[in-house]
Design a protein around this nucleic acid. Structure first.
Lengths: 242, 242
DNA sequence: CGATTCATTGATCGAGATCAAAATTGGTGG
DNA sequence: CCACCAATTTTGATCTCGATCAATGAATCG
């Protein structure tokens, strides 16, 4: 639960974070741990619950009928996801774990009830949705305009920042439980090209890699080179005027 | 205001739609008409109001420092946008009109007040946010996986459906107030390639074009060919259990 | 009508895709 | 500790879709 607490502590104060965590755990929740490859949400169904990622990674992806796969985003520890479920709509994408993962399943009806009773909670969840939207827009820019090298650098920098937020302190090493194919499906490239571009980036001293962990050698340079704007994820506190 | 009423009538019943429209107009709103190229939201500022597009087109876009532009999405008549403003955050993208456009500006504080007083309104606005997110995800798939021809077809089909929703009835002709460059910046391609691909699509009898209006000749074929899933925008009614 | 913006067409180039083979890695069990 | 296996990664050769550069041809609008 620490990852989630760290996450929301970015935008609400500590007592509020505590209250949110408390409200959430007192609801009709179930903590589950699944192995890698477990499908949490299947496209076309109505999952009627939302998830809090506590540990491990998951992906939201879309499969095309000819087998192409686009990963839409990663779910990292601390992420709250499928707030869309509040509309009781069919999922248009699937979500599956990438690693062994521990997460909280929260029933939608109970969650809605809690929202209605504690209106100030709503602002925090609204914020989560806004932040996710922001990441989606950034991903569109990434895939629409950036070169292979820019895309990879840009993604690594985003992951670094998000993992720092979950951990509650800056990290510089990004442990990536991803195959080249996963990266490729995220970035709209092929695994072969991911491999080649990563090699070139290592050769140029931008990153290092060992045991599936990426170390960002020179963050400022990588950011400049990747068109990464370090401020785009809003980590300011919410000011819901009351 | 009809376009907006038609839009939300997709997911709430008529009296509710009427109430939402009434609440909105009674707020601290201003109806404005701007020429093409007017900047409604500037990246980096805090706009502290939201907009209802009544007529005309606008784009949300991001400029990179070397001049590249990625259009993130189009705002069509009936669209409510910048709900993110409720968090009082800096905009990470700009919004500008593409044509002459009429829109409603709603002050954020008044809107928040209304939300708090009429809780059932919230569900409708939540729905709008969910729908926008859904379109963003679909755009990621489009730009990440589809070929030039697929991207164009896919976008046209989405625009057709959205324009139909605003009009309150199916249309088959999509009036596009877009230059090749706009399309290119939306789809991550170059204007030259847009032009060539459009020509090929006309040659193949997929679309026709005259006076900036696209007619979709064979919708089923275009949908199949573009990997367009006609059901992805959730037009079901909200079932917020109360 | 000019003038300016936008679209088309042609020629060439290049980033990334594809296909295929070889090299690494990471278990698993003896 | 080593041998074996499957999955993943790397490397090489070649191809292609879309980019780039540049010129020509419509539109649109004072």
């Amino acid at each position: 639960m620490d990852t989630f607490r760290n996450r929301i502590a970015q935008y609400v104060d500590a007592p509020m974070a505590e209250r949110i965590v408390k409200t959430l755990t007192e609801l009709d929740t179930e903590e589950r741990t699944d192995g890698p490859g477990a499908e949490l949400v299947r496209a076309g169904t109505r999952p009627n619950r939302l998830f809090v990622m506590l540990d491990g990674w998951a992906v939201r992806y879309r499969l095309l009928c000819d087998g192409r796969r686009q990963i839409v985003n990663f779910m990292l520890p601390g992420d709250l996801f499928d707030l869309q479920v509040l509309g009781d709509l069919e999922a248009d994408h699937s979500v599956a774990t990438l690693t062994q993962a521990t997460f909280l399943c929260v029933g939608a009806t109970g969650f809605l009830q809690a929202l209605r009773e504690a209106g100030d909670l709503a602002s925090a969840f609204w914020w989560a949705a806004v932040q996710e939207e922001s990441m989606l827009r950034e991903h569109i820019v990434r895939v629409g305009q950036l070169s292979a090298r820019e895309r990879i650098g840009h993604l690594f920098l985003e992951l670094r920042r998000r993992l720092s937020a979950a951990r509650g302190g800056a990290v510089n090493d990004v442990g990536l439980p991803l195959t080249r194919t996963d990266l490729a499906d995220m970035l709209g490239l092929t695994p072969v090209h991911i491999s080649r571009t990563l090699s070139a980036m290592k050769r140029d001293g931008l990153i290092e890699e060992n045991h599936r962990t990426i170390a960002i050698t020179d963050r400022a340079r990588l950011a400049r080179l990747s068109q990464f704007d370090d401020s785009y994820l809003h980590v300011r506190r919410l000011v819901f005027t009351d």
